[in-house]
Design a binder for these strands. Structure first.
Length: 464
DNA sequence: AAGCCTGCCAACCGCTCCCTG
DNA sequence: ACAGGGAGCGGTTGGCAGGCT
């Protein structure tokens, strides 16, 4: 990557580095910090410096090493290219899946995503995502597969619920989620889906902490994966089951939220639980959520996503999809009165159920699990303190603080939302798949096909 | 062959947060 | 309590390479 060195432009971009302007002749830069691509010689100097002095104190690099680079540039160069254990080359499919999952939940938090992918830098992930976004947008494809999107929605809904009903224990919910994963991970039927990263040497902050045989928040960033993730986790499936027939958040500020439950015949009483549902059965249902995948009794389609603040990319995308779906709702209900009637009827049922669930939720809200999880959460957050810098916030809390305007916007969604094409397709299939063990894992080609249907990402504004 | 387009990637820039004096 | 500096993060820019027309 030959890039011209800008010798004449020296905006004081760091913290007064230009005050260190030197008169030493370096051939290219005189009296300025150097910009542009790094040379091997510069790399060598920087590596040597870090070996001697360690990371940090980047501004002193310029003073002590003779490098005509600002501290910021040095830090970046080290972090993105020179530090050991950096993984170069294209992202593996597994890594891509992780990124998609993480982005659905974190938005453009590249550094946090990078923390989940050992050897990868935030810059790499950012570039990857932007390129991918561009490509998918151009192709008219949604940025997330529907399963990931639905789970992300559930994820954000859960946070919103926790914020409103258990303002001090939202992180506990994450622990509750995390506590559900071991069973999933140990499930033999899922063994082929083992996290491909889990055996990597530098996996302290990896997505799944295999060493503990436990999906836990190895740092503040660990998040549940989507049902399609190759790592065999599905908080949505889990939680949905935990709630039995109540695949919505009762009593939540989302009561008017378009959580559309589309029931398949209730066969729960004589149904052998799938492995996924077995996992859930061991957990006191605290939260209800949903995806369209892998449900035995009910399929719930969530269409109104919530987003953490500051996740500009995700936020925009989710709002766009919400708007698109809202628009589609109108037209599709007109086209398909049967569906509209079905959903309307179901909605009424849900309203009754919501009340019942609300009281159940309130009972649960003060249980001992919460207290214990809170303690665990404190531990996990302390594990992640990095260097002298204290992490600014619990990600769960960050997720919870949502812009009020968006919130009110989302609350004004129509009560009935359409099932997109991909979902209706899935519904049809689900009738025949209910007893199939891997109904939640469509073949990739199929999946890609599904992405192209029913979602409204095509309407996203250009990012260019 | 030339021009255009797109993907990829490194680096820059502005901003924010946290620490320290 | 406050200001300044260090560090990190996310957004953006711009050059190169390769494919396509």
């Amino acid at each position: 990557m030959a890039r011209t060195v800008s010798n004449n432009d020296s905006t004081n971009d760091e913290t007064g580095d230009d005050s260190n302007a030197t008169t030493k002749e370096d051939g290219e830069v005189k009296g300025r910090v150097r910009k542009g691509p790094w040379t091997p010689a510069e790399d060598a100097i920087l590596v040597e410096y870090v070996k001697k002095h360690g990371e940090g104190n980047w501004n002193s690099v310029h003073k002590n090493s003779g490098l005509f680079r600002c501290g910021k540039s040095c830090r970046l160069r080290w972090a993105n290219h020179l530090r050991p254990n950096l993984k170069k080359g294209a992202f593996s499919p597994e890594e891509e899946q992780i990124i998609i999952d993480l982005h659905s939940k974190l938005g453009n938090k590249w550094a946090r995503m990078a923390a989940q992918l050992p050897g990868r830098t935030d810059n790499e992930i950012k570039n990857f995502w932007n390129t991918r976004m561009k490509r998918r947008q151009r192709a008219g494809l949604p940025i997330y597969p529907p399963e990931v999107h639905a789970e992300a929605t559930a994820y954000h809904l859960q946070h919103r619920y926790m914020e409103h009903h258990q303002p001090h224990s939202s992180a506990s919910f994450a622990l509750l989620l995390s506590s559900c994963y071991p069973k999933k991970l140990n499930d033999p039927s899922q063994s082929s889906n083992a996290n491909p990263l889990q055996n990597q040497p530098d996996s302290a902050n990896c997505y799944i902490n295999q060493s503990q045989k436990h999906f836990k928040f190895s740092n503040e960033n660990a998040l549940p994966l989507s049902p399609l993730s190759p790592y065999g986790s599905s908080s949505s499936t889990l939680l949905n089951h935990s709630f039995g027939d109540h695949g919505f958040i009762a009593g939540s500020p989302y009561e008017s939220f378009p959580l559309v439950s589309v029931s398949t015949p209730d066969i729960s009483s004589n149904q052998t639980p799938t492995p996924a549902s077995s996992y859930a059965s061991g957990v006191d249902g605290l939260m209800g959520s949903s995806t369209m995948a892998n449900n035995n009794n009910n399929d719930y389609y969530e269409v109104a996503p919530l987003s953490p603040p500051g996740n500009s990319g995700l936020l925009d995308a989710l709002v766009m999809e919400a708007q698109g779906l809202s628009h589609n709702d109108k037209s599709k209900n007109e086209e398909d009165p049967t569906l509209a009637g079905k959903l309307s009827c179901k909605r009424k049922n849900m309203e009754y159920e919501e009340e019942a669930m609300m009281s159940a939720m309130k009972k649960n809200s003060g249980n001992s699990t919460t207290t214990e999880n809170q303690r665990d959460d404190d531990n996990s957050s302390s594990q992640f303190s990095k260097g002298k810098k204290v992490m600014r916030e619990d990600p769960m809390e960050e997720m919870n603080s949502m812009d009020d305007d968006l919130f009110s916007l989302l609350n004004q969604f129509p009560l009935e939302m359409p099932m997109p094409e991909w979902y209706r397709r899935g519904e049809n299939q689900s009738l025949g798949l209910e007893n199939q063990p891997n109904a939640s894992a469509p073949d990739p080609a199929d999946q890609e096909y599904a992405w192209t249907l029913g979602t409204c990402w095509n309407n996203m504004p250009s990012i260019c």
